[in-house]
C-alpha cells in the first residue's frame, strides 16, 4: 500500500506541474523511473478522482486528467485545518505548539507567575 501512496504522490506532482492536464499514457511516461503498468496508472487515477483530487476531461479521447486544485491551495487547506484555534480540534490532531483559548491564557499565566515566585 505504501507504494500505491508513493505512486499517487508522483501522479499528483506530475499533474500539478502540467496544469493543462495529461492522459494516462502521458502520465506513465512521466513516471518512467517507476515504470508502472498502464492499468496501475488507471487505478491510481480512479482512486484520486474518488478522493476529489483529480478531475477527468471525458470529452477528450483518450481522457485527460487534471488536478482539481494547485499544490499551494492544498497546502493552504491543510494549514487552515492545522492552525485552527478551536480547542476541540485537538482530538483530530495535536500541534506541537497547541493553541489555547483566552480563559486558559489566564490559567497558564498564573502557572508561570507561580513558578517564578517559587524560585
Amino acid at each position: 500500500m505504501a507504494t500505491l501512496g508513493e505512486l499517487e504522490r508522483s501522479v499528483m506532482n506530475a499533474l500539478w506541474n502540467t496544469p493543462s492536464g495529461l492522459t494516462a499514457a502521458e502520465l506513465r511516461g512521466e513516471l518512467s523511473d517507476r515504470d508502472p503498468a498502464l492499468t496501475t496508472v488507471h487505478t491510481v487515477l480512479t482512486r484520486l478522482e474518488k478522493k476529489g483530487f483529480v478531475s477527468r476531461d471525458r470529452a477528450a479521447r483518450p481522457h485527460r486528467y487534471l488536478a482539481v486544485s494547485s499544490r499551494e491551495d492544498h497546502v493552504a487547506e491543510l494549514m487552515t485545518e492545522v492552525l485552527d484555534q478551536a480547542p476541540d480540534r485537538q482530538a483530530v490532531l495535536a500541534r506541537f505548539l497547541g493553541a489555547v483559548s483566552d480563559s486558559d491564557t489566564a490559567f497558564l499565566s498564573s502557572l508561570i507567575n507561580r513558578k517564578l515566585i517559587q524560585r
Binding site: L97, G98, V100, T105, L108, S109, L111, I112
Partner: peptide, 18 residues
Amino acid sequence: AAVDSGSHSAPLAAARAA
C-alpha cells in the same frame, strides 16, 4: 514559539519551557 505567529501559543509554550 519565537517563529510561530499564533499569539495564543505563547503562554502554554512558556509554561512548558519553565
